[in-house]
Write a protein that binds this DNA or RNA. Structure first.
Lengths: 234, 234
DNA sequence: CCAAAAACATGCGTGCACGCAAGTTTGCGT
DNA sequence: ACGCAAACTTGCGTGCACGCATGTTTTTGG
C-alpha cells in the first residue's frame, strides 16, 4: 500500500490523490510506450490521452508539454530520491561528498529503466532538451535537504547551492546525451563518451569547495547568529 | 557606423546582417512599446509584427516565443557585456572577484532601461519566467571568458562554473522580482527588497570558493595532464 | 447519512510555435 | 554588369497549450 510521510505520521492518501496518481502514471506509461513503438514524432497527445483513458484536455492538466509526459516515465521521483540520499548520508561526511555521492548515486543504478528509452531521448532534440531540463526539479527538494543537513545555512545560500548543483547536473547530462547520440567517432582528442556517473562526478567536483566552505561558515556562525527565518518551503 | 570586431579586424556587417539586426530591434521595440501601452496580455504577435512591418510568420523566425520579444528589449547584449567585463578585469584579481564584480556590474547600471518595463515584467508571471530564463544566455559567453582568463581550465570545468554562475544569477533575479512584485508592505521580518546588486553579490558569494579553487588548481596543474578529476572515492 | 463545497474531468474556442513550400532579396564570382 | 546560389520572407496548414464554463465526483461538516 502506498503511503507518504507527512509531519511525522504516515497517512494514506485520499481516494482523490490515489486516482490522480494512477492517471498520471497511466499517462506516463502510455506516452513512453507509444513513443517507443512509433517514434516520438508520430505520437499525438490525443493518442496518449486515449491510451490512458482520459480526454485530451485532461492530459494537459497533468503535463504542460507533450515531451514531459514521455520523459516523466524515466525521471519520476528522481528529485525526492536525491534529497533523501543527501539527508541519509552519515553526519560525519562533508557536505560536498554527501551531495556529490547522492547525485551520482541517482545516475549509477538508473538501469531499472529500459536503456532504449534513453537512446530514444538522446536521439530526439526536443526530448533531450526536456529531459535535461527536468534536473532543475531537484532544486527545491535539494534545497530542503541542505537545510535539514545544515540548519545554520540561510535560505538564500541553500537555494544558491541547490541551483548550482542542478545546473551542473544539467551540464553533465547534456554533454553525455550529446556524446551519446552523435557518431562515436567524432574527430578528436576528447574521449567521446565517459560513463555517466563518472561524468557527473567530474562535473560536480569543481563545486565541492563551495559546498564545504558554506558548510564550514555555517558551523562557525552557527550557534551565535540570528535565529533566522528558515521554515522549509512555506 | 556600426561595426563589430572579429579576429582583430573590424569589418562592416553586410547589408543582410544589418537588415536582420534592424528587423530584430524593430520587433523588440514594438513588442516592448505595445506591452507597456496595453498590458502584456493584450498584445498579439500579429500586432507586434504589424507594428514592426513584417509578417507574423517572420516574427517567429526571430523570436521563439511572444514573451522573449518583449523581454529582449531589456536583456539584449547583456551576455556579451558580462563576458567582456570578466576578461577586462586586471589579471591580478582573483577569479571569484572578477566574475562576481562583472556580473554585479551588469545589474548596477541597468538604469538605462525604463524602470516601468521592469515593473511590468515583475507583474506578469509569464514575463518574469522568461526574463529570469534569459540569464542562462550568459553561460556560453561566460564560459569562453573563463577559458580566456584561465586557459588551463578544461572545457568541462569552465562550462560547469559558467552554468553555476548563471543558475545563481537566476535565483537572485527570481527572488528580487518576486519581492518586487509583491506588495511592498509585506508585514514581516525579512527586509522586503534588497537592492538588486547587493542581492546578486550575496547570492554569488557562496560560489567564490569554487571559482578560486578551480583557478588555483588550474594554475598549479598548469601544463600537465588530466585536470579536475578526482579519483572516484575509494 | 445528507447537503454544501471543493476539486476534478471534459468540451470548446483562441492564440501560438513551427514545418513546408513557394516567392523574393542579397551576395559573390566571372 | 550579369546570373546563379544562398539566405530570407511569407502564406498556409497542423498540432499544441491553456483559459473558461459546465457537468461530475470526492470531501467535509453537521
Amino acid at each position: 500500500m502506498i503511503r507518504v510521510r507527512v509531519d511525522d505520521v504516515t497517512v494514506r492518501p485520499t481516494l482523490r490523490e490515489r486516482k490522480k496518481q494512477a492517471t498520471r502514471e497511466a499517462l506516463q506509461a502510455a506516452a513512453l510506450r507509444l513513443a517507443l513503438e512509433r517514434g516520438p514524432d508520430n505520437v499525438r497527445v490525443d493518442d496518449i490521452a486515449e491510451a490512458a483513458g482520459v480526454s485530451p484536455r485532461t492530459y494537459n492538466n497533468y503535463f504542460p508539454s507533450r515531451e514531459q509526459a514521455i520523459v516523466a516515465a524515466v525521471t519520476a521521483q528522481r528529485a525526492s530520491r536525491v534529497a533523501a540520499a543527501v539527508v541519509a548520508r552519515p553526519a560525519d561526511v562533508g557536505l560536498a561528498d554527501a551531495v556529490i555521492d547522492a547525485v551520482v548515486g541517482q545516475y549509477t543504478d538508473s538501469g531499472e529503466h529500459a536503456p532504449e528509452a534513453l537512446l530514444m531521448i538522446a536521439a530526439s532534440p526536443a526530448l533531450r532538451t526536456c529531459y535535461v531540463d527536468t534536473v532543475t526539479t531537484i532544486e527545491g527538494p535539494l534545497a530542503d535537504a541542505l537545510s535539514e543537513r545544515c540548519p545554520d545555512l540561510d535560505r538564500l545560500t541553500v537555494q544558491v547551492l541547490a541551483a548550482s548543483v542542478g545546473a551542473v547536473a544539467r551540464v553533465a547530462l547534456g554533454q553525455w546525451l550529446e556524446a551519446a547520440h552523435e557518431a562515436p567517432s567524432m574527430q578528436g582528442f576528447v574521449v567521446p563518451s565517459r560513463s555517466l556517473p563518472d561524468l557527473v562526478r567530474a562535473a560536480l567536483t569543481p563545486l565541492g569547495p563551495a559546498l564545504d566552505a558554506s558548510a564550514a561558515r555555517a558551523r562557525h556562525a552557527g550557534s551565535g547568529g540570528d535565529p533566522a527565518i528558515d521554515s522549509p518551503r512555506g
